[in-house]
Design a protein around this nucleic acid. Structure first.
Lengths: 138, 138
DNA sequence: ATCGGTGCAAATTATTTGCATGAAT
DNA sequence: ATTCATGCAAATAATTTGCACCGAT
């Protein structure tokens, strides 16, 4: 996984995003984690390396990235809204004890019965699983 | 569908909820609609009949009902959190144009592939469908 | 008089907006 | 000099907390 500023700069430019120092700092964390952080978690995390950045800028940057398709934002029945660097369509598993969210590739699950539903024109299917993560070998 | 105050009073008492005037007013609307209103929509709607009630009371009442199992609360990727009088486990369809949310009975869909996922102990499965509601005979 | 429960004002948290500043032409 | 983009202070929206009030004992 490459985290160098040059790489990130190019990545942002490729989306037409001006790579300001703040945006690079946010990108460096949020585009390369498989956590599913809330906006506030991003703010905390980013300030470790880049101490002077406001919450508003973090929110605006996350929204900008989401608009440009670098991030998805999700919101589940329990917690606050989270951001997800995985921009492919995918499903989610939520550990009910820890709150940890894990991505499930879209083709690992199949949903049947959709065609039998009347009056609905379905173009997107997402599954949310809940349960416990068995702590296996990491 | 019965909306009389007597009925509602009993319903609330059965859950150990003191049926104050405010709570009955909220219950009268939210427990008998198949809309999926936000807290603010509930507030607006309730004030038609019961003009003096604060937002805080509506929030607290909705949370109380949800704790007692009279309501579920949901939150989807787009909009704000909504409340749902359907307390059975179920799936959802969201009309991408209107935002309208429709419940899908749990047994109308089947999700396969869950057993093949390793390291996950799954005890709940929810599906969110998106698309368009074909306007059939209403 | 005291206690427990209620509703709401105020506080807190979450998010968006609008404007002062600085860079580019 | 003008324009345009940026980051943040302040505004707004969303939600929770804590306390004054009231009814029952």
């Amino acid at each position: 996984m490459v985290h160098d500023a040059l790489h990130i700069t190019e990545l942002l430019r490729a989306e037409g995003i001006q790579p300001s120092a703040q945006r690079v700092a946010v990108a460096r964390y949020v585009l390369f984690t498989d956590d599913h952080p809330t906006a506030d978690q991003v703010w905390s995390e980013v300030r470790r390396d880049f101490p002077v950045i406001s919450r508003a800028t973090v929110y605006n940057t996350l929204n900008l990235f989401a608009e440009k398709g670098l991030l998805q934002s999700h919101s589940f029945d329990d917690g606050a809204g989270v951001f997800d660097a995985n921009t492919e369509p995918h499903h989610h598993f939520i550990d009910e004890e820890t709150g940890r969210i894990v991505d499930i590739p879209i083709d690992r699950l199949r949903v049947s019965g959709i065609h039998e539903l009347e009056g609905l024109d379905v173009d997107d299917v997402r599954v949310v699983l809940r349960g416990r993560l068995k702590d296996g070998p990491r």
